[in-house]
């Protein structure tokens, strides 16, 4: 009896132990280690114990470093631009195509492809298409008698090029989420609006969009978090250049560690990025909880009535 109840109390821990152990060894500990490393002047040739402790110097130097600030700005601009474009296009297309169309399943399947393929390969494909002479864009322009565009060799164009690649890859994500949200809307609300003689636009503005809002906000936050993580596509397409025009933060972390061998500085950058992502995550978490609580309250009120 006592052994059985002891076993019962231990059961959840037995189920959890492998996961907790793995997460502690390979995720939590590294994050702690990173925070510690960000206070060091550390190079890959040294043991971490030999590195000099420099306090907040890495953070302060970064803050005063114009190149880092520019890279931070590029990251924010990139995230803001791609996420707004993807939300507009994704939600717009979902509203437009939310009807009984044959072949919708095929479209959704094909739309997943860009997200499933390795970012490295996505970068490769776009780099080929943007190629100054053999790329499909400049070839087409030439055949129309237009001047070629310096896609990846001009600061502004290379930013545009990277944005287009990301929009190609991730608009389907917003589209699929929005479509799922639209199809789970309560039919009764839409039918009531139709009886009241609401036009298509009125239905979208006053019923569909407000009811989709919880899903849209979560989709927005998820995309925002992912946009700050982008690395490989840009690495392959432009390697951050020309100049710093596409040097997003994660790429700068990679180059600071790999090329400049300044692990302490790279750790401090990682910490800036992590803080940013944690803020977004907490916002999402709090928002989700609020929506759940509201839904639960509404259900409870409906039951009482």
């Amino acid at each position: 009896m006592t052994t059985a109840s002891k076993l019962n109390r231990l059961t959840p821990y037995l189920f959890l132990a492998p996961a907790v152990l793995l997460l502690a060894v390979a995720l939590l500990y590294p994050i702690g280690y990173m925070i510690y490393a960000s206070f060091l002047d550390w190079r890959p040739s040294q043991y971490i114990g030999e590195a000099e402790f420099v306090g907040f110097r890495n953070y302060i130097n970064l803050w005063n470093d114009e190149a880092f600030r520019e890279s931070f700005g590029v990251t924010l601009k990139f995230a803001a631009v791609v996420v707004s474009l993807e939300m507009l296009l994704g939600v717009g297309l979902a509203l437009l195509l939310d009807r009984k169309l044959r072949g919708m399943a095929a479209l959704r399947t094909i739309f997943i492809l860009p997200m499933m393929i390795a970012p490295i390969v996505v970068g490769l494909m776009w780099r080929y298409m943007y190629h100054p002479t053999v790329g499909i864009f400049n070839r087409t322009l030439k055949s129309w008698g237009l001047d070629p565009i310096p896609w990846l060799s001009d600061g502004t164009w290379s930013f545009v090029a990277v944005v287009i690649a990301d929009v190609w890859q991730w608009t389907p994500f917003i589209f699929i989420l929005s479509l799922a949200a639209l199809q789970s809307l309560p039919q009764s609300a839409l039918e009531a609006a139709e009886l009241d003689g609401a036009t298509g636009w009125q239905k979208i503005w006053h019923i569909k969009l407000p009811l989709m809002m919880p899903v849209l906000i979560v989709a927005l936050l998820l995309r925002l978090i992912d946009a700050f993580k982008v690395l490989e596509v840009v690495l392959v397409m432009t390697n951050g250049g020309p100049g710093l025009s596409t040097e997003i933060l994660s790429l700068r972390i990679f180059r600071t560690a790999q090329e400049f061998q300044e692990l302490g500085v790279a750790a401090a950058m990682s910490n800036y990025l992590l803080i940013l992502l944690m803020i977004l995550t907490v916002i999402m978490f709090v928002y989700n909880k609020a929506v759940e609580n509201r839904a639960a309250r509404l259900r409870a009120e409906a039951q009482e009535a």
Binding site: L27, I31, Y33, M34, L231, S250, I253, A257, S270
Partner: peptide
């Protein structure tokens, strides 16, 4: 939410 770029330095070390 932890991106691979953040794990780069500590995991290497």
């Amino acid at each position: 939410m932890v991106p691979p770029a953040v794990l780069l330095v500590p995991v290497f070390g």
